[in-house]
Amino acid sequence: MEVSNDKEYIYSSTELDCDEGRIIEEVKAGSRESIPDPDAWLDEDLRRNIILTSVDWVLDWARRSSLWTAICYPACCGMEWMATLSPRFDASRFGMEIMRASPRQADLMITAGTLTWKMAPNVRRIYHQMPEPKWVIAMGACGISGGIFRSSYNVVPGYNKIIPVDVYVPGCPPRPEALIYGIQMLQKKINKAKAVPDLSELPNPLKKGKKV
């Protein structure tokens, strides 16, 4: 039987598919090791000798009190996050309810759900599009480790293979209370951040001798 080719325009070009495949293979090859969690600065306190307490306090207060979330929900944990936003659990009590469709306006990424390798380059791009400072919460078993799909051929075994993760919220899916608790943990973590750079590492003109 003859098959008409007049609807060829509805098909994507093979060239684009090959490009996509190449990018996915690159991401996959570069994600063998987990990215360490970005919390080395948590025990910086003792090392620092110049402390700008008030400035840090104000900046940390401002940052932790208005977490703007980028919309990045690949799977079913997104439903729990929607429930978290809704009046019953009401995340806006804690200043966490604002959602942004553009990652350029967001500073928090809640990775709600299973991530496939085909989606991984896009999620990493969303992460890179977010301005600093930015934080990531891995929500649910799949976000932490790949969950029940861990050994599958197409699932990323944990978001920390492609982006650094600050807080892990376990559950399948986590209850809204757990998610709110996770965001509160993140707020506590942000509270410890030193927004002003470590001045002791800058060259000191008053000190004689060799520059470090």
Binding site: T14, K118, N154
Partner: peptide, 26 residues
Amino acid sequence: EGHPNLKRIFLWEGFDGHPLRKDWNQ
């Protein structure tokens, strides 16, 4: 045979093999 656009739809171009075959291994 006769499909005008027979290429991968879920997996990406360059994926090795066809994973739902019983003899496929990662």
